Amino acid sequence: MGSPVSLVVANLYRGNGTKSHSCKKQNQSFLYSLLLSIVLSIISVLTVTLNLLVIISITHFRQLHTSTNFLLLSLAVSDFFVGFLVFFQVMMIDGCWYFGDLICVLYGFLSIAITFSSVGNMVLISVDRYVAICDPLHYPTKVTLKIIRISVSLCWTFSLFYSTVTLRSNFGQQSRNSSCAGDCAADIGFGGIVGTTIITFIIPITVIIVLYLRVFVVAVSQVQAMRSHIAAVKHRKVNAKKSEIKAARTLGVVVLVFLMCLCPYFCISLSSQDTLNNTLSGVYVISLFYFNSCLNPLIYAFFYPWFRKAMKMIFTLQVFKSGASDANIL
């Protein structure tokens, strides 16, 4: 999942004021800073590496060019960029920004855009599984590669547009918003924080939960139906349904982990931002939020044999052999 919107705003939002001599570093213990640096550094490396493996696997092997996998690819791209954003979070542990005004604006812009695109990808994945399970006969015609590409493109386009609109008043005014030298501030106000949380978290999560509850009910009924169908003539149809239900279960785990990682952060960020910024519990909440982006590839590795085979071929450099893209890894 992408970088937290509210966290970005909290780190950027200091309110308007005049610039003083230099930023005031947070009064944190050495153990606190060391713990946060180590945890976030590990998360950053794992996120970049694991999601890069997913990107290479799906783009390289032709057998993986399916509509569902294309959604996983889009999610992996979002999570891949989160790994780089975590690096900046590591550098901001002491409360100061060392990369200048331009990078500060770019950091805030990408953070919001990637967060929104990640949530959007989760919604698209939920819709994909909803149609596959609840309307399987029309799934091949309703969910085609062309439709998925258009949906993903719109998701990313709207994410960039939303980030631009959210931070439009701060472009070119970073120095005015900063309260001190070494500060990275953007003024969107508390109303902007609440609105962003509703748009990028509450509404999408509600849609995801509703869709997956429906998928769960239908999947359970289909499992019961399959157990009663023992005739050999229906064997292939039963296997096809099992495949769809297995995919729904796997992606259901992805969504569940997504909710478990995000909910604690958003609940605390809306109730008390100081809890996130100034307490040790904030370390775990923020780290859990970021950790979601490197958990998804681990879930794929556990549930999808094709991902394990793809990783083996990548690490053994078999992907460079002639015709490797047509290899049978399913």
Rank of each mutant, 00 (worst) to 15 (best):
5 V>N: 15
5 V>G: 14
6 S>M: 10
7 L>I: 12
8 V>W: 09
8 V>I: 07
8 V>D: 06
9 V>G: 05
17 G>Y: 08
17 G>K: 04
22 S>D: 12
23 C>G: 14
25 K>R: 15
25 K>A: 12
29 S>C: 00
30 F>V: 06
35 L>R: 03
35 L>H: 08
35 L>I: 05
36 L>E: 14
37 S>H: 08
38 I>M: 05
39 V>F: 11
40 L>Y: 11
44 S>K: 11
45 V>D: 08
46 L>G: 11
49 T>F: 08
49 T>V: 09
50 L>S: 11
52 L>A: 11
54 V>N: 06
55 I>Q: 00
57 S>H: 05
60 H>L: 02
60 H>Q: 03
61 F>P: 00
70 F>M: 07
75 L>C: 14
75 L>E: 10
78 S>Q: 07
78 S>G: 09
80 F>A: 02
80 F>G: 01
84 F>S: 03
90 V>K: 12
94 D>R: 06
105 V>K: 10
110 L>P: 05
110 L>W: 09
113 A>F: 01
116 F>P: 00
117 S>W: 11
122 M>G: 14
124 L>I: 08
125 I>D: 01
126 S>L: 00
127 V>C: 08
128 D>K: 00
128 D>Y: 07
129 R>M: 07
131 V>Y: 10
134 C>K: 13
139 Y>W: 13
145 L>G: 10
146 K>D: 02
147 I>Y: 12
149 R>M: 09
154 L>S: 12
155 C>D: 06
158 F>S: 15
158 F>N: 13
160 L>N: 08
162 Y>E: 03
162 Y>A: 05
169 S>L: 12
171 F>G: 05
176 R>N: 11
177 N>A: 02
179 S>H: 06
179 S>Y: 08
191 G>R: 03
191 G>C: 02
193 I>M: 11
194 V>I: 13
195 G>S: 11
195 G>F: 04
198 I>E: 01
201 F>I: 14
201 F>H: 15
205 I>V: 10
207 V>F: 07
211 L>S: 06
214 R>I: 04
215 V>P: 00
219 A>P: 03
223 V>I: 10
231 A>P: 00
231 A>E: 10
232 A>P: 00
233 V>P: 00
235 H>L: 09
237 K>T: 09
237 K>E: 12
240 A>C: 03
241 K>A: 11
243 S>E: 12
244 E>G: 05
244 E>V: 04
250 T>F: 08
250 T>C: 10
250 T>P: 00
255 V>L: 11
257 V>Y: 13
257 V>A: 13
257 V>N: 14
262 L>R: 04
268 I>T: 13
272 S>I: 01
273 Q>M: 12
275 T>K: 08
283 V>M: 00
287 S>W: 05
291 F>S: 15
291 F>Q: 10
293 S>F: 05
295 L>I: 08
300 Y>H: 15
302 F>P: 01
304 Y>W: 14
305 P>S: 10
306 W>P: 00
309 K>V: 05
310 A>Y: 04
312 K>Y: 13
313 M>D: 06
314 I>H: 02
315 F>C: 03
318 Q>H: 15
319 V>E: 02
320 F>H: 06
321 K>Y: 11
325 S>Q: 10
327 A>Y: 07
328 N>K: 15
329 I>L: 15
